[in-house]
């Protein structure tokens, strides 16, 4: 019993974010007639997909104690190369190529950070610019259209649960990465590395490899997000998704994934994405001026981090 109370207190943060989400759902359900309808919820979910996948990537990187600011650039490059491959070999091989490109670019990030000893923030800021420029070079600044319109089916609803195929992609990503962090030995390694890299090293863990692999997963997931984004317009182009990594990082932080590393979970990041998306959705449904939307979202990030700090300070 005593242990339960301690755990409840130690995890006060979890409940804060859950309660906020539930409160918003209740508020929006009671003040609007349109929020709690199947159509709206299906749309809401569909809109979460791209940022949601990126938020999973952010969570993995942040738990391993690194950060990846090149995610949207990786998404663009992978989608462009993937789209080209789709046109040549079909959709399936194109997706595989896109993911491989994402993993490779992630590996490049990882090597720059772990072997090049460049701070992850700076390194991926730089590689992000490089990748983005790379995308412009490949395309000559042009849009790459995908010849097979079947790719747009990702936005169509599937047979089960009535949600879109893209939403299924997100669900699958959440499930796999979630179990990986929650239960796998590899996940434990990432937490250990992010929690205290020096201690991890003395415990026989290869910190460099753990962080590099986290970047590779992050790159692969960015590529998947890029493909979903490309499916929306049946094309890929160099400027696609610009700045999305910041939304994803914000979502993870709101959910309670620690910027300092070693602490967090996939469900937290997804809850963060859900909150951000619900605010946008609420503004639309309530007919509030959307100009204030970003102000509220920004404020939410500040409050989330401030509350986190406050709880931590009281603990210590």
């Amino acid at each position: 019993m005593n242990g339960l109370v301690t755990r409840l207190k130690a995890n006060a943060r979890d409940y804060g974010i859950v309660f906020t989400a539930i409160a918003l759902v209740i508020i929006l359900s009671t003040t609007t007639t349109t929020f709690f309808t199947q159509q709206n919820l299906v749309n809401l979910f569909d809109q979460m997909v791209v940022v949601g996948i990126l938020a999973c990537a952010v969570t993995i990187a942040m738990i391993a104690g690194v950060i990846d600011l090149s995610m949207s650039a990786i998404a663009a490059v992978s989608a462009i190369i993937g789209a080209t491959a789709m046109n040549a070999f079909g959709i399936g091989p194109g997706v595989v190529v896109a993911i491989l490109v994402g993993v490779a670019l992630g590996a490049f990030n990882g090597l720059a950070v772990t072997y090049g000893k460049v701070n992850a923030f700076i390194a991926t800021l730089a590689t992000g610019m490089m990748f983005r420029g790379f995308a412009v070079v490949i395309t000559g600044g042009q849009i790459v259209a995908i010849n097979n319109p079947a790719i747009a089916d990702l936005s169509k609803r599937g047979p089960i649960l009535n949600i879109t195929w893209a939403s299924w992609v997100l669900l699958l990503v959440v499930l796999i990465t979630g179990i990986m962090l929650w239960r796998s030995v590899y996940g434990r390694t990432l937490y250990a590395v992010g929690g205290n890299p020096a201690a991890a090293r003395i415990s026989g863990i290869s910190v460099g490899w753990a962080q590099t692999s986290a970047f590779m997963i992050s790159g692969g997931l960015s590529a998947i997000a890029g493909v979903v984004l490309a499916s929306r317009s049946v094309s890929a182009q160099p400027s696609m998704g610009t700045g999305l990594e910041f939304t994803a990082i914000a979502a993870a932080v709101i959910g309670g994934v620690s910027f300092a590393g070693g602490h967090g979970a996939i469900w937290r990041a997804i809850l963060g994405v859900f909150l951000l998306q619900m605010i946008a959705n609420g503004f639309n449904l309530l007919g509030l001026p959307t100009t204030f939307q970003q102000v509220v979202q920004g404020l939410l990030i500040l409050v989330a981090v401030a509350v986190d700090q406050l709880i931590r300070r009281r603990k210590s």
Binding site: R183, S184, R188, A192, N196, A199, R201, H263
Partner: peptide
């Protein structure tokens, strides 16, 4: 500095070296 990961639990800190021993097919047997 180079011993514990303070935000993690006693269990997580204690098992970091033997993490593979308590697992099956890459998944931990908690």
């Amino acid at each position: 500095e180079d011993g514990l990961s303070l935000i993690q639990s006693i269990r997580e800190n204690a098992t970091i070296i033997v993490r593979r021993k308590y697992s099956r097919a890459g998944l931990r047997t908690v």
